[in-house]
Design a protein around this nucleic acid. Sequence first.
DNA 1: CTGTGAAGCTAATGCCATTAGCTTCTCTCG
DNA 2: CGAGAGAAGCTAATGGCATTAGCTTCACAG
Lengths: 187, 187
Amino acid sequence: MVARNRLTPAKVVDAALDLVDEHGVEGLTLAAVATRTGVAAPSLYKHVASLAELRAHVGVRVLENMTEWFTDAVLGLSGDEAVTALMHAYRAYVVRHPKRYSAVPVDPLHDEIQGAAGRKLMEVMFATLRGYGLEGSEAVHATRRLRVIVHGFASIEAEGGFGLPEGLDDTYDQLIRMYLDDLRGKS
Amino acid sequence: MVARNRLTPAKVVDAALDLVDEHGVEGLTLAAVATRTGVAAPSLYKHVASLAELRAHVGVRVLENMTEWFTDAVLGLSGDEAVTALMHAYRAYVVRHPKRYSAVPVDPLHDEIQGAAGRKLMEVMFATLRGYGLEGSEAVHATRRLRVIVHGFASIEAEGGFGLPEGLDDTYDQLIRMYLDDLRGKS
DNA sequence: CTGTGAAGCTAATGCCATTAGCTTCTCTCG
DNA sequence: CGAGAGAAGCTAATGGCATTAGCTTCACAG
C-alpha cells in the first residue's frame, strides 16, 4: 500500500505550477510551496534538489503541456491549415496561462533537465511544416521564423506589452498570413 | 564646489547596469551595487527607493540607449533601407548586450517610470514606417508586426535559444525580406 | 563661525534558501 | 510476527539579502 498523504516530486511540481499561475515566477518560492503542500520548507529537499531545479521541472511541465496541446491542435491537418491551427493554438495557450508562459526559459534546448521537452516541442513545429517540400536548412530556417513569430507575439501579449489590446486579433491574423505567404513564395 | 566622491542616483544606475551586463538580472542586487560603489548597502536608499525601482531605472537607461542607437541607424534613410537598417541595428544591439536586453521588461508602456522611454522607442519604429502610406490602424499593425519580429528573434538569440548559431544571419535576412514583402503586398 | 540638511554609517528585523542531525513511520525480509 | 533499514518529515541553525530606524559627519549657506 502506498501511503496516503505522502508528498511526491510530482505533487511538489503541481503546487509550484499553481503558484506560478497565480503569482508569476517571483511567487515561486520554496517557503510558499511548503505552506501549500502542508510541509515544513526543508522537507521539500527530500523531493527536489533546490529551488533552481524546481523551476526547471516547472518548465518541463509547461513545455510538455504545450506540446500535447499543440499536437492535438494540428492532428489530422496539413499545409496552411496545420500551420494556422498551430499558431492559433500557441497564442491561445499563452493567453490562457500568461504567467506560466513567462516562466518558461527561452533556452530550454541546452538545459540538462529541459532539453528533451524543448526538443519535442520544436519537433511539433518542424513536423507541421512537412508537406511544404522544404529541404535541409530550408526547413530549419522556416521553423525558426515560425518560432520567432509565435514567441515574439505571445511573449509581448503575455506581459501586456502591446498598448491597448485593440485589434490584436487582426495583428495576429496578419502575422499568420505573412508567414504563409512567405512559405508559399519560397516554394 | 560639488563634493568629489559623492554618490548620485546616476552613478548607482551606472553600477547596476554594469552588474546586469556582467551577471544578468539575477546579479543585480543592492548588496552588489553597494560593494561596487564603495558604500554600505543601506546608504543606497538615499539615492534609490528600492531594488524594484532601481531595476526600473536600469530599464529606462537601456530603452533610452536603444532609442539613441536606432535613431542614429535610420537617420537619413527611408523606406526599405530604413526598415532594414533598423532591424539590423536592433539585432546588433542585443547581440552586443544580451543580458542587458533580457533585463528590460517587455511591458514598459504602462510602467510609471519606464512609460515615456518605452513610448519613445516605439516612436522610432513608427516613424521608420512613414513613407509606406499606411493609414490609421494599418500603421499600428505594421509597427506591431515589426516589433514581434525583432523582439522575437532578439529575445531568443539573446538567451541562446536557437540550437546552434549556424545560419542565424540567413534566418534574420529571411525575416527582414518577409517583413518587407509583407509591407509591399499591402500597399 | 554656526547650524542645517543631505549622505553616510551601524544595528536590527524579517524573509528566504539551504544544511545538519534527529525522529518517526512504513514496508520488507527473516 | 518482529525487527531494522530507508524514506520522509521535523526542528534548529546559518548566511545572504532587502529594508527600516536612528545616529554621525560633513559641506555649504547665511
